[in-house]
Structure formats: C-alpha cells, structure tokens
C-alpha cells in the first residue's frame, strides 16, 4: 500500500482502514510512501519495487495523475491487481486496475452549496490550491464552478490560483489574493496545504476578518476551530483504505470487483467534529491491527 506520504492524519487513517480489512485474513500490509509530499520520483520507485516483488496486490494513492500511469501499467501487466485510491489516474479502470476514489463531484457540489449558504447567495470567491497533478481536484473545481454558475449566478469566482503541497507557497499565494481583492468574501481551498496557507494569511491580516473559508482535505483537525472556516470537506481515507484492500482480497479470491467505487466525502464542521462518524474516520486505534502489547507496571 503506497499512500501519497505517511505520518499524516489522512494517510494513517487509510492504513488503519487497510489493517481493518486484512484482520483475520492472514494477509499482511506492506506500507511505504515517500518521505515528503509531492515526491513523485520516490513514489514511482516504491511502486516499481512492489511490482517487481512478491506482492499479491497494490493499493496506490498517486502523487501525480500522469506520472504514475506507466508504473501502474507495468504492475498491472505483471498480473498484480492495482487499486487506486483518493484521486484517479488519467486512465480508465478495467482489467486488473480498480478505483476506490473520493467522490469529487459530490465534494464540489457540497462546496458550492456551503459557499452559497454562507454567502446567502451573493458574493465573491477565490479558488486556491488548484493542483493539476490531481485529477480529483480538477474535477471538484469543475463541478464547484458549474454548480455556482447554474444555481447561484450572484456568486462570482474572481480568482483561481494554482496550488502545490507547499504550505509556504500557498500562504504567499493567499496573501497576494487577499491583497489584490480586498472585498473578497470567500476562499475555497482545494487541498490541505492551501487551507494551512490561507488560514495563516487570514489570521495575520486584520482587514480580512470577514473572509470565510471552505476547504478540502486537511491534516490538521484544529483548523476546523478557526473562525474563518465554514466547513472542511474531508475525503474518507479510512473507508478508501479498507475498501481498496477488500477489493484486492476479493479479486484474489475470484469474487467480482466493481471497477470503480466512489466514496463520498464527509463534511466536518465545528458542530460535528466530535461526532462518531468523524472520530471513527480519524481514529488511530491500532487495536484492530497487529499491536497487542501491554504496558509494563
């Protein structure tokens, strides 16, 4: 299983989901990922190593929609079932290639509805963190804009900026956007780093107290308590990890597997932050997995 990176809330949750799926099956999860966000080269190296190793399946959260196509094709050609999670590649599913991905169309629609609700149907929006490396982000941006245009004509998208996994860069971009558009009402941050960058810029700019934020996929639950935040639309990586591993096990057992499964995102607000659904989604409870230790007296 190769997530985009490790040690973050989203991807550790995916690992918990995967461990949950293999519980009692005798299967073992090999878990490795690049040591930093956006390190496509390192991710390709891990995928190639797995494809040439003695593994029965591969679950991959690609760091880049295009660059991972060839390594994934190589793995599929070797007869390894591959499940793509989070954001799709630029190839359709089929054969030994399956998708268990975030339903970005739903995410985009929810974002448009929440923005409209917060702005009461009128205002200006800046979209930050548009990262073309992720097909899912482009999809959610497209749906978001089309829903706004169709249903809320008085809400206009006045700025759209490219993004990256680099929070410092995102903060700079947010700062420039706020400076250039003093009457901006809403920021829609398309990924975790753009949420961090935008909140950092908003927090240090007294004149931007009125600006609200709807964001996607944070790794920091504390962001939800930030007064600028309307909601965070979070991909359910735990369910993705679980369903992806189950798809591999089903495929290996000869059971039918859906070529594509869409996992709806979860909307997190201050009011449901401690709800069972959100707590479960972010749970790091390893008792499901292999840890059976006890504390020494």
């Amino acid at each position: 299983m190769v997530p985009q990176t490790e040690g973050t809330l989203r991807w550790e949750a995916a690992h918990v989901g995967a461990e949950e799926a293999v519980q009692g099956t005798g299967a073992f999860i090999y878990w490795n990922a690049p040591m930093r966000d956006g390190d496509v080269e390192a991710q390709i190296a891990v995928v190639d190593r797995i494809a040439s190793g003695n593994y029965k399946g591969l679950v991959l959260a690609p760091d880049q929609a295009l660059a991972l196509v060839t390594p994934v094709r190589r793995a599929v050609a070797r007869g390894i079932p591959v499940v793509i999670i989070a954001s799709p590649l630029d190839v359709p599913p089929g054969g030994n290639l399956f998708y268990v991905v975030n339903d970005d169309a739903v995410g985009g629609r929810i974002a448009a509805e929440r923005v409209a609700e917060a702005l009461h149907g009128s205002g200006s929006v800046a979209i930050l963190g548009v990262d073309p490396d992720f097909a899912g982000i482009l999809e959610r941006v497209r749906i978001f804009e089309s829903v706004l245009a169709a249903r809320y004509p008085h809400i206009s998208v006045i700025e759209k900026r490219l993004g990256s996994p680099n929070a410092a860069h995102e903060q700079q971009v947010a700062q420039e956007t706020i400076d250039e558009h003093p009457h901006l009402d809403m920021i829609v941050a398309m990924n975790g780093s753009s949420i961090d960058g935008a909140l950092s810029a908003l927090s240090s700019e007294p004149s931007s107290r009125h600006i609200l934020l709807v964001g996607f996929d944070t790794d920091n639950p504390a962001n939800i308590d930030n007064p600028h935040v309307v909601c965070i639309i979070q991909e359910d990586t735990r369910s993705m990890g679980r369903d992806a591993v189950r798809a591999i096990l089903d495929k290996l057992d000869g059971r039918p597997v859906q070529p594509q499964t869409l996992i709806p995102p979860v909307v997190i607000t201050r009011s449901n932050l401690n709800s069972a659904q959100v707590v479960r989604m972010w749970s790091q409870d390893w008792t499901l997995g292999r840890m059976q230790w006890s504390r020494l007296p």
């Binding site: 690992h15 461990e19 999860i29 878990w31 790091q284 390893w286 230790w293 504390r295």
Partner: peptide, 12 residues
Amino acid sequence: GRADHGWQEETQ
C-alpha cells in the same frame, strides 16, 4: 511505538 512498514504507537 513499533514499525513494521507502518506505525503502531503506544496510545497512552
């Protein structure tokens, strides 16, 4: 904690 190509941490 313990790592086995995945991290399991003492929860307390």
